[in-house]
Design a protein around this nucleic acid. Structure first.
Length: 494
RNA sequence: GGGGGCGUAGCUCAGUUGGCAGAGCAACGGCCUUUUAAGCCGUGGGUCGAAGGUUCGAAUCCUUCCGCCCUCACCA
């Protein structure tokens, strides 16, 4: 099994013995592979470099496919046309090797533009064989653990991550044009706040102080509102010490946006414009596929209050006037588990999360959540039982929440105290300690503001049609592999 | 953490009722100067995820463990 590697190492030695460096240095390229096609001229002199994806020996000639990040160009190597060390290298060429070649462009009898190679330089000898060329790399574990092989073997995977990059660039561009300032706030926080989630804990030796990886940047971004940055955003990683699933990775990318003097409605307009513009510019269309379904991102998106939505879904306008027993019966009838101590609101929300939300494939802003469900948001003036928030749902998953932010420091202190008091004593999530430093900031005066967060990984899933969050994160979290007792025996698994 | 599925050559996969470990690609040797999933002839390559058990005999059945996938739970 190590035979393949041994053979290649032997070739490295043979080349070195002949004074040929198997791991060459700088190579000046005249063109990328794609440009050889678009800028084709018979006899044009080119220098290209890339990885060998196919080698087809043909008597005293060899055809090879060279891949670089732009695409593919075929090489035609004739023994009688190679200069210098070319022959020695050619005799020891393997799939996966990275080479640089110089030569002139021509078109083969079958009509394929190719480089008639004159100079062949070995830039990096691959010691391990690449995955199979026709079926690609399918094993999910290898694809996630050794993503570089996935990227080399499966072109559509590389394309997806390029698209992810374009999406993020367009998001920044959109916010920049709207006058938002990108900021960076601490990822290591003494008190993790801004969300209810179990944090990762670490220890800062120099200060002898426990620290937490942030679960949200919210409380720092609000400090910046106090400081006079009126339109700010942060697009970076959050960390939550919770389970893995198709839509959860412990570190995930979040966009949080705050706009002073705005509110929930301001943010709804912003999020709708942002997503549609990004989809249009990065993906070129507003109708990404999702399995069987097609998502239509064309605005305006549906906006519906929580209570109306639940009533509409269940087909009964009188839902909220039902008795707890009738509500529980409805939930059980839908295959949900309810316990006697659940409040009507809790039963309703169970139905919302398990039945209503997954049914919302097309983009929907769910508005006016019951206050008891969202303790940190501002209540609506004309309906104190509801809070002024929205939750954007697309393809059955929450993509973006938005708030009319609370800016009353006294009310905020009460909410924190209530939150801390409501925690079970054995709770491991954040929220046990009141962030006095943040409250002090608020007491200096925080402007009213709208805030929104967009889960970037989930947004990318929607725009690319990916079924799992692992398919849109380059190196998703996996269980660490046990150390190999004999590393030398298995170099592929360090 | 619970339930279900999967793990066979570097990669993609077969493997029947428990009865000699297989194919294609890749590799190695040979032929071939416009091929392209090149072709033809030949060769090598296996801790069947790991350990234990049942059996005359285990890739196959049982137990435990490891890893991956799905699902539930947790999850503003």
């Amino acid at each position: 099994m190590d035979e393949l590697r041994e053979q290649r190492i032997k070739k490295v030695g043979e080349l070195s013995d002949r004074g040929i460096d198997p791991f060459g240095g700088r190579f000046l390229r005249s063109d990328e592979a794609q440009a050889c096609h678009t800028g084709y001229r018979e006899g044009k002199e080119v220098a290209v470099a890339g990885r060998l994806a196919s080698i087809r020996g043909h008597g005293k000639t060899v055809f090879a496919d060279l891949h670089d990040s732009s695409g593919k160009i075929q090489l035609y190597l004739r023994r009688d046309n190679l200069e210098g060390a070319g022959l020695e290298i050619l005799d020891r060429l393997d799939l996966g090797d990275i080479v640089g070649v110089r030569g002139e462009l021509f078109t083969t009898r079958k009509g394929e533009i190719s480089v008639l190679v004159r100079e062949l330089t070995l830039l990096s000898k691959a010691l391990l064989p690449p995955p199979e060329k026709w079926h690609g790399l399918k094993d999910r574990e290898i694809r996630y653990r050794r993503r570089y092989l996935d990227l080399v073997a499966n072109r559509e995977v590389a394309e997806l991550f390029r698209l992810r990059s374009r999406i993020i660039r367009e998001i920044r561009s959109f916010l920049d044009r709207r006058g938002f300032l990108e900021v960076e706030t601490p990822m290591m926080q003494p008190i993790p706040g801004g969300a209810a989630a179990r944090p990762f804990q670490t220890f800062y030796a120099a200060l002898h102080a426990p620290m937490f990886l942030r679960i949200a940047p919210e409380l720092y971004l609000k400090r910046l509102l106090v400081g006079g940055f009126e339109k700010v955003y942060e697009l970076n990683r959050n960390f939550r010490n919770e389970g893995l699933s198709r839509s959860h990775n412990p570190e995930f990318t979040m966009l949080e946006i705050y706009e002073a003097y705005g509110d929930c409605r301001t943010m709804m307009e912003l999020v709708e414009s942002l997503v549609t513009e990004v989809a249009d510019k990065a993906c070129g269309n507003l109708t990404p596929a999702s399995g069987e379904a097609v998502i239509d991102l064309n605005p305006p998106w549906k906006r519906i209050p929580y209570r109306d939505l639940v009533g509409e879904f269940l087909g009964r306008e009188d839902w909220f006037s039902l008795s707890p027993e009738e509500m529980a019966a409805e939930a059980v009838g839908r295959g949900l588990e309810v316990s006697p101590e659940m409040t009507p609101m809790e039963i309703t929300h169970e139905i919302y999360e398990k039945c209503v939300e997954p049914s919302l494939i097309q983009p929907t802003f769910v508005l006016d959540f019951p206050a008891s469900l969202v303790p940190l948001a501002r209540r609506k003036k004309d309906d104190p039982d509801s809070v002024d928030v929205f939750e954007l749902v697309i393809n059955g998953t929450e993509v973006a929440p938005g708030y009319s932010e609370l800016n009353d420091p006294l009310e905020q202190r009460r909410r924190f105290q209530d939150q801390a008091a409501a925690r079970p004593p054995d709770a491991t999530d954040a929220g046990g300690e009141i962030d006095e430093d943040f409250l002090e900031a608020m007491e200096s005066g925080m402007p009213p503001a709208g805030g929104a967060g967009i889960g970037i990984d989930r947004l990318v899933m929607i725009l690319t049609g990916a079924a799992s969050i692992r398919d849109v994160i380059l190196f998703p979290q996996l269980r660490p592999k046990k150390e190999d007792p004999n590393p030398e025996a298995s170099p592929a698994n360090p």
